[in-house]
Design a protein around this nucleic acid. Structure first.
Lengths: 224, 224
DNA sequence: ACGTTAGTGTCAGCTACTGACAGTTGACAA
DNA sequence: TTGTCAACTGTCAGTAGCTGACACTAACGT
């Protein structure tokens, strides 16, 4: 109520967010510069000037901090996918979900960390055995979730019809490759990633755009 | 030289093996009965009556103990694959490698742990998040190794020709499914696993038996 | 203005894991 | 047989990730 006060969120919530963001930024910065396992929680909390206990109130584990940004991006995509209209084919839906998630991803991303730091984090994950393991598990779970989502859209059962899982595996496979290419590249911007992704997804489209609402897979358009 | 002495290995080596086997058996027994994370190293070493330090001289980590038997089985397969004659097709080689590895697997297995305990361990791994993560990473590494092996046999480059990785992925995919089915079943014997594996691999054969030594994939027999 | 409650710090403790050093015991040669 | 060497093990002390309990402070609602 007081004039001049930012009432979008209370002071308490803003403070909380600042602490979390600071912890995340410092953690990723240290992870990427001196290595994940070489970085202790104490180093992170000392730099932010909070207690170790506080770190573990924001992140259930050291690993969770490493994946926090990746997690955020993935969630944006899933949210976006859930919002796609029902008349899109599975592939259209996934592709449009990616397409329409860019803005909110970009926004949410650099509200917390520089894009370039996100890029370095991605490279770190893929080169640290302990994080690779977690990454693979997370990816498997994410794929399962998306497959379930797609199956629901199409009124199918993931366990009897292999197409949702196959389609999702192909799609996320492409996404993983584009991520790798982006990481190897020199341009650390969301736009660069966006461009690469578009180019690669263009190749995948035709092969998966088929109509799934008939019992057998045929390449005709859906009845409507 | 002394009569009555088992000279296949020295007393020292035998003692060592006994300690390791005991640690492994107890570890897996405890893991599978009360859970992986609920089991401490101390519980294991107390039961075997050695110091914690000794455990870590045999196993680099708690995880390594959980995967020791799986690791052994995988190694038997890779050794077997390496020994396949060069004139077999990739799929023939992989399949025959599995086929000819059964005996040594079976032998090596129940020299250390009951097959039924191996089965329970496999189920444990697939239901413990921390172990799932490690399992996926190990599997990825194993697949990469096998793909490299296959590529070498065929004089191909894994990075330019996708067929080795694809073939291996299909093959290990089938193996994983058979493992799951076996785990869900009631018969905890190597023979049961063998039977399931044979049945499933039979379905995969024709699709992958093509000749790879021509630049383009055709389904004819090889020239030589 | 005041009680409530969320967020934090402190402390004590558990578990995985490691390095250093010392004791024991099998292997092997004299 | 005996003595030396090397391997295996135990003990100890310490680090790092992580958790529960409790007390304190500051934002919040009334």
């Amino acid at each position: 109520m007081t004039p001049g006060q930012n009432t979008t969120t209370g002071l308490r919530a803003r403070k909380k967010r600042r602490t979390r963001d600071a912890l995340l930024r410092v953690a990723l910065e240290l992870f990427t510069t001196q290595g994940y396992e070489q970085t202790t929680i104490d180093e992170i909390t000392d730099a932010v000037e909070v207690s170790q206990r506080t770190f573990f109130r924001y992140f259930a584990s050291k690993e969770e901090a490493a994946f926090a940004v990746v997690d955020m991006v993935e969630n944006k995509f899933v949210d976006s996918l859930r919002a796609r209209p029902a008349d899109e084919t599975p592939f259209e839906a996934m592709r449009n979900a990616v397409e329409s998630a860019w803005d909110s991803v970009s926004e949410a991303l650099d509200a917390v960390v520089p894009v370039e730091l996100y890029m370095r984090t991605y490279l770190l994950i893929e080169s640290t055995p302990a994080l690779i393991a977690v990454h693979l598990r997370r990816t498997a779970e994410l794929e399962e979730g998306i497959a379930q989502l797609i199956a629901d859209r199409e009124g199918l059962d993931v366990n009897t019809d292999p197409r949702p899982r196959v389609a999702v595996a192909s799609f996320t496979g492409v996404m993983r490759v584009t991520g790798k290419i982006w990481g190897r590249g020199r341009v650390a911007s969301v736009e660069a990633l966006q461009e690469i992704t578009r180019a690669y997804l263009d190749h995948l489209g035709p092969a998966l755009a088929g109509n799934w609402r008939t019992p057998v897979c045929d390449k005709d358009r859906r009845p409507g």
